[in-house]
Amino acid sequence: MDKEKYAKLEQEISPKAPLLKNVIKAFLVGGTICLIAQFIALFYMTFFDFTERTASNPTVATMIFISMLLTGFGVYKKIGQAGGAGGAVPITGFGNAVVSAAIEHKTEGFVLGVGSNIFKLAGSVIVFGVFSAFLVALIKTILVKMGVVSW
């Protein structure tokens, strides 16, 4: 059997991802995480001196804190398994990537293990975020200078 034929057979036999089910679960899990964050934002706006805009910073930090606890107690991987992208895309998923890498590499020490591996998974998100932000801001700044668009 040649490679092409085998690839076809493999496609036939390997189970397909249950797309509709996965999409619904991602929607519900991701939506719920955002909703919880909205309540946390409400908390910061009610009890501290935050506005709707500035509440976003402490809210994000709090969500990452919750994500740390859930990751440490082995709950976040279950959320990720059930929710798929619903668990990965919110900032809690970013937190999970950082925290899981950190505790994984504890056995290699705090400097060589935790320190150097903490962004093993999340690092690429930061790199691509920074680079695209640079490009976008650069282009926009140049366009503004040329008078094509305004701020």
Partner: peptide, 17 residues
């Protein structure tokens, strides 16, 4: 798993295969 896949506590969704 930590070597070939992800950290143990990372919430990647595993497929049926």
């Amino acid at each position: 798993e930590r070597q070939f896949r992800y950290p143990i506590e990372y919430g990647a969704q595993k497929g049926a295969a």
